[in-house]
Every structure is written in structure tokens, then in C-alpha cells.
Design a protein around this nucleic acid. Structure first.
Lengths: 141, 141, 141, 141
DNA sequence: GTGGTCTAGACCACC
DNA sequence: GTGGTCTAGACCACG
């Protein structure tokens, strides 16, 4: 598991960790039953205050995504994969809806937005297609 | 010029003011050469500390959107309308691109995304088209 | 006598007037014994608060450049031409010395500075020789 | 990092700090990745209100020269050295051009100006050449 | 009346 | 500990 942390990002460091763990779980990189790196180990690896790591893990725990295995460490919960995927989808659709509303309010025409969406999907598709995500699908009606 | 401020919003008050002023300029509600409400006046109207208003205005000034007319007040700069429109469009397209990339990475299919975009545009178009000045877009919570 | 006033300039309006009057006197556009436009007249012409005009004239008076002629108005003092020219030269040499010192401190080489001076003098010489009244050059901020 | 602040200078305190930080970065005294003194620490050291320091730092941040490292402090951005050097050079050449134009308009001959430049460069060169870090240039009074 | 600046003291999230 | 934000009240120059 690799993390990329940017302290000068607007997002809090602990939150960056939380998101990346959830993303890795949703993706399947982290699977249920798998142990996470210890607080000390990760704090050293990322050169980040241990408190910050601990807080991220605490957040993940209260989100029901990881659990403590006494004496062994923190492990991904059963069912976490699906939960993270749902969570991620909900988050994304929410954001997409918000951005579209703002684009309309901001003066873009529906046609412009559709064109932009098509262009972006086209340019992104190639890159993303090779990633572990499920293959093609027949277009919906 | 009307403002709607929510102190409990995550966004700082001064930033809410900045955004709404830029939006009003982009829209044409505020035109170049027009004076903004004075710091004291607005601070009373919104029941907000004058320093907070001043900070918002300073931000707008350093953004090259308004300028001080000594002893008279702050006025919208020439060319601010176009600048704010560009700014808004750039911001929106940037966000849209980001959300789409995230959606693809998050496991949504291009077809699903297009369908969602169409659905949202359809449901939003009616409402937005007839609204004269939508000063604030509700956040995703 | 023409004035060009920029309310959004950092320099106070009254000071812009003071400078332009002194400049006109140094140039010979305004000669000793000549009457200045009245406060009311100038305030109307420039669409500026009469207080501001009055303050500028007061400043010029206390600088010994103009004087009241009872019942007639304000006139340029005898000897004001020379005084303004000296004043202007002193101001310029002072500034030149300051800018040169700063350029050296800022890392420019003496050779670079000399080259720049020659280049600027060359490109400016033609224009300046023929210009009648260069009323205002935007300050360096 | 040492600061010399003069509250009775025409320049605002926060602006004096901004300039000195930029100068130190341009010089190499402050390097990318280096942390600036904390707001509280500097406010104590200079006997200046923390808000004033914070304002200076915010200015530097919006100028893209420093960035906040959450919970750790403010650090010099990558590439800030070059940016500050360019900034400084641009500022200086701009001022030099302005002063030269004014000198020509004010009646000095090109020959006089060149002589003055040579004289000043000669008298300043010795002093400046040997100075390692001239943190402050005396103003014209 | 206007904005620009500074001080003083408080609360917050983050590390 | 760090910065970010807000409030309160003051003084200044300018018009």
C-alpha cells in the first residue's frame, strides 16, 4: 500500500489517508482481513506525526471500515469492499450533481456541458481502461 | 445587491462575500464603475464585523476585480465582467474534469456517467433557465 | 492648464494636483503672476470635491509656490519657476540615486544598469523632445 | 532570519514584512522547504500583533511564495527563489525606467543623467560589492 | 462620509 | 504547538 500525501493540499492529512485507504479497499488493493501498516511504521514511512496516523485509523474505525484485532493490529473489516464502493459511488454522484448544477448556474449551456463530458470521458477512457476496473459495457439506451 | 451569508457554512464568511460579488459581476448585476456597498453599510446590513467585509473587499481588490476610489469607496474595475466570467468558467470546467476523472476511477462506466449527466441536466434545466439571479447554490451537505 | 486625475491611483488626488501644478510651473506652462483656476471652477471641471482642490491649493501656498491676491484669486509667485525646477531636479536625483542603490542591492551588475540606462535614454529621447506636457506617468506602485 | 521594522515608515508594517521575506528568498537566505518563524514567535520577537504577522504571511501565500504545511507552519514554496528574483528585477527595471523618463521630462540632459549614473554606481559599487546580505535599503527620507 | 491599518482577544481544526 | 477566522474597537488620511 502506497500513500501520496501533500501537506500543502487544502485537505487535512488525516483525511487524505482516510480517503486513500477507502479507495484502496474499494479498488480491491486492500482486502477484508488484511492488516494495515502500524501507526509507528506508517508515521515513519510518511514522515508524519503518529497522532495524525492514529486519527486517520480512528476515523476509519468509526466508519466501520477497519477493526482492531487485539494484539495483531488493525485489519480491513468483512464487507468493507462493498461498503467503500457504495460510499465512493454515492460521493461521486453527489459531487457530479453539484458540479453540473453549478455549471448551469454559471452560464454554461447544457449542450456545452455534454460536449465537455464526452470530450473528457474520451480522453480519460484510454488511461483508465487499463486500471483494474471492470471492462466494457454495452451503452445504455 | 443582495448577499446571503451562512456563518455555519464550511466556507469562510469573507470568501462567501468574495464569491457572491464575483458572481454578481460575472452576471452583470454589478457593472464596471459601479460602487459597492460601503464596508460599514454592508457590515450593518449583514450583521457582520466590518473587518470581515474589509477583508473580502481586499481580496477582491488583489484579484483585480475592484479598485478603491479614494474617499469615495470601492468600484468595479473596467473589464471585471469578462474576467469574472472567464474565471467562473475555468473554475467550473476544472471541477467538472476532476469529478469525471474521479467517477471513472471510482468504477462508474462512461455510459452510466453520460446517463446521469443527461438526467441531471434535464431536471435542472427547467429550474435554472427561468431563474434571473441564483445567488447561492446549495452545497452537498 | 489641463489636469489628468486618476482616483484609483495610489497617490492622493490633492497630491496629483499639486504635482501637476508644480510641473506646469517648472515647465513654464504656468508663469509667475498668472492666476490659477478658481476652486469652484476646477472642482466642476474635474468633477472633484471642492475641499480636495482647496487642500491642493493650500499645499501649494504653504510650499511658497502660489499666493493669494485678495479679491482676484491665487497666482503663481515670483520666482516659482526656478523654485519648482530646483525642487523637481532635487526630487529626481534623489529618486535616481535610490533606485540605483536598490538595483545594485537587488543583484543587477553595474554594467547591466549602464546598458539599461543607455537603452532607455535612447528610446525615450525621441519621444520626450517633442512632447509638450506629459501629465502623469503611472507610479511603480 | 532578521527583520527590521519601522512602524512610523510610510509603508505598512505587514508590507515591510512581505518585502523583507521576498528579499530574503530572492537572496537565498530563505530557501524552498524552509519553515518561516511562526506567527506567534515573530509577533513576540517584533513586538507586533499576531494578526499583522498573519496578514503579511497571507499576502505572501496568495503571492504564491509560501505555502501552509498544516499544523507545522508556513514554508517557502518550491521555485519561490526564482520567482522572487524575477519579481525583484522586474520591479527594479520598471522603477529605473520610470525615474529615467521623469528625469528627461524634468529637464535633465541625457549626458547629465549618464554622468550621474556613473558617479552613483562608482560610489555605491565599493560598498555594495563587499556586503554579503544587505537586508534593508535606506529610504529617501 | 470613505477605506487602510493596527491592536487585542477569542475560537476552531490540525499536527 | 501550528495557522485560519472572526469580533471589537481604535486611529489615520482622504474627499
Amino acid at each position: 500500500m502506497f500513500f501520496s500525501i501533500d501537506p500543502s493540499d487544502g485537505v487535512a492529512i488525516y483525511d487524505q489517508i482516510v480517503r486513500q485507504v477507502k479507495f484502496a479497499i474499494a479498488e480491491g488493493t486492500l482486502r477484508p482481513g488484511q492488516l494495515l501498516p502500524s501507526v509507528r511504521q506508517l508515521s515513519q514511512q510518511l514522515a508524519i506525526n503518529p497522532n495524525t496516523i492514529a486519527r486517520a485509523y480512528q476515523q476509519l474505525q468509526s466508519d466501520g471500515v477497519i477493526e482492531t484485532w487485539r494484539g495483531r493490529g488493525l485489519a480491513v473489516c468483512a464487507g468493507a469492499t462493498e461498503r467503500c464502493q457504495e460510499l465512493r459511488r454515492a460521493l461521486i454522484t453527489e459531487r457530479l450533481r453539484f458540479v453540473l448544477a453549478e455549471a448551469l448556474h454559471g452560464g454554461l449551456q447544457a449542450g456545452e456541458i455534454r460536449a465537455m463530458v464526452d470530450r473528457e470521458l474520451g480522453s480519460l477512457a484510454g488511461r483508465v481502461a487499463t486500471v483494474a476496473s471492470p471492462p466494457q459495457v454495452a451503452g445504455p439506451g
